[in-house]
Amino acid sequence: MARVQANDITINAIKLGDGLSGPLPPVVFVHGLIMDNLSSYYYTVAPAISTETEVVLYDLRGHGLTDRPATGYTLDDALDDLEGLLATLHVPTPVVLVGNSVGGTIALHAAITRPELVAGIGLIEAHPVVEGWGDHLMADIEELVAGFDEPGVREFITGEGGRKLKRMAGVCEDMVTKTSLPADLRAATVMDAELLGRIRCPALLLYGEASDILDRAELLAAAIPGAELRILDGCSHSVLMEAPEEIGEQLHEWLGSLPVTSA
């Protein structure tokens, strides 16, 4: 585990399979929003992929053990952090970006706006930016945080709720009230069919059969040239936790099919 200085913050990152030089580009895993961090990959698909190529796991700005400054939460900022991280870790680009949920939004944004950075995007339950996306994402968590001020709630959280609940509540409250994350996400540019149609790298789309955002999977499959959509039976939006082995196999197979790029 490394504390990496990049883009004026300290980023928590782990490099696995260090020094492996095979035909595959490095794979960088990008986790989801607020309660998520690199552990979602550390305990699931990352170790197996790291036997094939160099792998980078990191905590996004504001998440996990990475710094939580007040600003810098736009999708562009996320890519600046990522580029800084890769440069400091001496990871050659382009890389394959695997993104889960909002991590997938970041991967999509990279494929659209910084194609030179991206050799492929593996999207797990990815959210493209659609109309009202920021509101939709933030509404539940803002309501949750507003509820902390109801009578007795704060006393419970800091008392008998225990250490983990206290920390989780603290993270949610800080993200909502002390950072520009809500405003930054609400200001994100909608990824319409024209923008998505610009994507030229290979794209794998993995979604759960019972996902609440299955319509986005169909939108992406129709708009991204050559995208491969796979629906996993019996799984929901939490497919990475529900079927890590199947996700790992799908990623492995897809990585093996990528065109070999000369470094």
């Binding site: 696995l16 690199l38 550390y42 905590d59 053990l65 225990g162 983990k164």
Partner: peptide, 25 residues
């Protein structure tokens, strides 16, 4: 009440301490 990210941090520290002979992953 260890959080998952703290458990990762612990395993990484154990790896630094004991080396690859102790293969936590």
């Amino acid at each position: 009440e260890l959080e998952s990210i703290e458990f990762v941090a612990l395993s990484e520290r154990l790896l630094e301490r004991y080396g690859s002979q102790v293969d936590f992953v």
